[in-house]
Design a binder for these strands. Structure first.
Length: 339
DNA sequence: GTTATTTGACCAGT
DNA sequence: ACTGGTCAAATAAC
């Protein structure tokens, strides 16, 4: 690990925080089981929190002991949201007169997460605003802005790994300022309480094939927990994957291209599986009431390139009376595998 | 008509 | 000069 004792301690606290969130997820799922559609948004919120905590943990590790327990630096809002004025060039095209289009990420506010197939990403709503071929890379890089609330400076870049096309390398840049917005509302477009911005941004649903917007496959608690989405999946990426195998929870936290590509993939996939890593295949009891699954994620430092593997364990113990479902979730750092 | 995505051009850091 | 990041017009989808 690049950091010293101080940074590591801070990261540990954040990871514990993430574990608390997963426990909340357990409670919510148990309570909302009969009304799983309404509960989906709250689950999304908790998973978002988990993701955020992990992100901050990584940032702490990157900073090391010298910086103590400071929070993630938030990029100056103005630098991301003020784009200056535009003028028309000779061809009639609007040419921006803004300055500072390209921003440095040397402030450490970025971090990369590598997701494999089946691993769940964050649950924010992202809007794609660009795609770029990168020199020396087989796959284009996609650029996303947070679309959850206007003005949120958070961005992410998604690129399919050259070495392992089954991996998505996701770089998060900037902190979300949309936390105040209750995610459950975001995830339930039908709710009357959501504000106009949110309602506008959740209309990506309308472009979905109806069969995917409300998939009949999402009927059980296990389905919800095991469901995975690809948070930055573009059609071009999808074409490169020969055998997609994931199930999907419809959520406004995905862009149109994400939903559509997953929809197409879902049509081809026979059985939803969550086996992102064959070396630690999940112990599955398909028909039994007890089951457990693992989702593997990796965090990679932008500074030293170190990859820190984690796995999230979901398991359920259910009594024979089938009244109390005991869904557990646990975040586990996979020791001895930092590289 | 509205909204999201695509894509070529622009801009700035290296 | 090259390259990556962003903008915004054009296009697609609904």
């Amino acid at each position: 690990m690049a950091g010293g004792g101080g940074g590591t301690t801070a990261a540990e606290k954040l990871i514990v925080d993430a574990q608390k969130s997963t426990n909340q997820l357990k409670d919510l799922l148990a309570k909302l089981l009969p009304r799983a559609e309404e509960g989906g948004g709250a689950v999304e919120a908790i998973l978002s929190h988990m993701s955020e905590s992990l992100s901050q943990a990584l940032a702490s590790l990157q900073r090391g002991a010298s910086t103590g327990d400071r929070r993630l630096p938030v990029p100056p809002e103005a630098s991301l949201s003020s784009h200056g004025q535009s003028v028309q060039n000779s061809g009639g095209r609007l040419v921006s007169t803004r300055s500072g289009q390209r921003r440095s990420r040397a402030d450490g506010s970025s971090h990369r997460i590598i997701l494999q197939h089946g691993a769940r990403g964050d649950s924010y709503l992202w809007r794609k605003y660009g795609q770029k071929d990168i020199l020396g890379a087989r796959f284009a890089r996609s650029y996303f802005k947070c679309g959850q609330r206007a003005g949120c400076p958070a961005r992410k870049q998604v690129q399919q790994s050259d070495a392992d096309p089954s991996r998505l390398e996701i770089t998060y840049i900037g902190a979300h300022t949309c936390h105040e917005l209750p995610s459950p509302s975001c995830a339930t477009p039908a709710a009357n309480s959501i504000d106009d911005d949110t309602r506008r941004n959740t209309t990506s649903h309308r472009r979905l094939p109806a069969a995917v917007a409300v998939p009949s496959t999402m009927q059980t608690l296990e389905d919800h927990v095991l469901a995975s989405d690809m948070t930055a999946w573009t059609p071009s990426m999808e074409q490169e994957i020969s055998s997609p195998s994931w199930l999907f929870i419809p959520s406004p936290a995905c862009s149109q291209s994400e939903l559509l590509s997953v929809a197409e993939a879902e049509a081809e996939a026979e059985v939803p599986e969550l086996q992102p890593d064959a070396s630690t295949a999940p112990v599955e009891h398909k028909k039994a009431r007890d089951w457990e699954r693992f989702v593997h994620i990796q965090l990679q430092s932008d500074l030293d390139g170190k990859i820190i593997p984690f796995r999230v364990k979901f398991c359920q113990r259910q009594d024979d009376d089938a009244v109390d479902k005991d869904l557990r979730s646990e975040l586990i750092q996979e020791a001895g595998d930092v590289r």
